[in-house]
Design a protein around this nucleic acid. Structure first.
Length: 280
DNA sequence: AAGATCGTCAACCGCTCCCCA
DNA sequence: GTGGGGAGCGGTTGACGATCT
């Protein structure tokens, strides 16, 4: 765990400047969490469970707001939190779900087990918005939406499929929940890789249909669409989705997707030239 | 080597929603 | 019906390490 004790350095003098008042709770701490605080929160929640964060903070002996405790637990301490690089499948899901729901980060996060809304939000702002900036268009513009649909997403799909055929053991889909019969596979229901319609026209309708064909069949009220559910496969937990994509759970070897598979590497010079021309 | 700039991410803030008395 | 408290959400900030000049 990468927990910095910097909080003590930054806020260690707080108590000396504050009057002790249980009523006002003026000695509430802010800033980075210390190892001790993490330990206190983790132990308390492990024993008593989540909920009632304000009273939980008091009873756990934490000089933090309930909000702060909740955030720390959900984004960091919770055992199910998955750390590490966003995988290609996760990138694809984020792009697809964001195209449908916009900045509904918590809703999007429901479909990426172990990922927090904060993490997805940060990913979007630092990676996706950066690409929009490179292309000199707004991230919400039709131009950028088309760029994602016709270049970015197809390339992600290609790469995912290539990764599968490369077939390092870790890249193999989990077999635990193979009862997803009939649910589309990458590239078949989602989009046709390498299809690059005339982006100068109003082609978003057809692309929307392509992109939505699976999504519309999916019960988004269910955080695990098409019966996707955590499955134990011996070395970790895997989740499968209605798209036919599965995301290797924590504890898995994600190397086949991480390390050099940042979005920047997806955006080849060729793509950039193509897009810049198309966007003019 | 040192300062400037950039990228990432943890954490906070303010607002809204929901539940309950 | 309504007011208050708790929880959740999305936007924003700031610290810090990495990279660049």
């Amino acid at each position: 765990m990468d927990i910095s004790p910097v909080g003590d350095q930054l806020y260690g003098s707080l108590s000396s400047t504050q009057q002790i008042s249980e009523e006002d709770q003026v000695d509430l701490r802010k800033g980075p969490w210390t190892v001790e605080e993490d330990s206190m929160l983790f132990n308390y929640v492990s024993i008593h469970g989540e909920g009632r964060w304000n009273s939980l903070a008091r009873h756990a002996g934490l000089k933090r707001t309930g909000k702060s405790c909740r955030l720390r637990w959900l984004n960091y301490l919770r055992p199910s939190v998955r750390r590490g690089n966003i995988t290609l499948q996760e990138q694809l899901l984020i792009l697809e779900l964001h195209s449908r729901w916009g900045n509904r980060w918590s809703k999007i996060a429901q479909y990426l087990p172990g990922r927090t809304d904060n993490e997805i939000k940060n990913y979007w702002r630092t990676r996706v918005q950066k690409q929009a900036k490179q292309l000199k268009c707004d991230v919400n513009s039709k131009q950028f939406q088309d760029a994602m649909r016709y270049v970015w997403i197809p390339r992600l799909i290609e790469r995912i499929q290539a990764g599968r055929s490369d077939s390092s053991p870790a890249a193999q889909p989990a077999t635990g929940s193979s009862d997803l019969g009939g649910v589309g596979q990458w590239g078949s229901n989602l989009v046709v890789p390498n299809s690059r319609p005339d982006m100068s026209g109003t082609s978003s309708d057809t692309s929307e249909a392509q992109l939505s064909s699976v999504s519309d069949q999916t019960d988004y009220g269910n955080p695990n669409p098409s019966g996707g559910s955590p499955t134990e496969n011996g070395s970790g937990t895997s989740y499968q989705y209605g798209y036919g994509a599965d995301i290797q759970g924590y504890g898995q070897n994600d190397n086949w997707l991480s390390g050099g598979d940042s979005l920047e590497n997806w955006w080849s010079e060729e793509d950039l030239r193509f897009l810049e021309t198309a966007l003019q």
